[in-house]
Amino acid sequence: MLHIKCPYCGLRSQKEFSYGGDANVKRPKLNAEVTDKEWDDFVYMRKSPKGHHLELWHHTSGCRQWIKVKRDTITHEIYQTAKIEEQIS
């Protein structure tokens, strides 16, 4: 079970969090002209990278903040966590 450092609460068990998918996905701007392909890519298409992955987690049973987590999908090592407005390398 992962141990995730919430930038607001500190190290907490994975049990308190919900996974929120790829943090690099950008929602198209409201009212923007979007092709079917672009929209489908946003809604459905996700990479399944081996290794580094920047992802969103929600501290559901904690402070209820969405946070960024840089994780290795093979080793499950967590390199860095950050608030949503912070940049992560």
């Binding site: 929602r27 903040q65 969405w66």
Partner: peptide
Amino acid sequence: LTHLEYYLQVV
């Protein structure tokens, strides 16, 4: 609630 928080905090 989680849905609303996502759009307010992330999007």
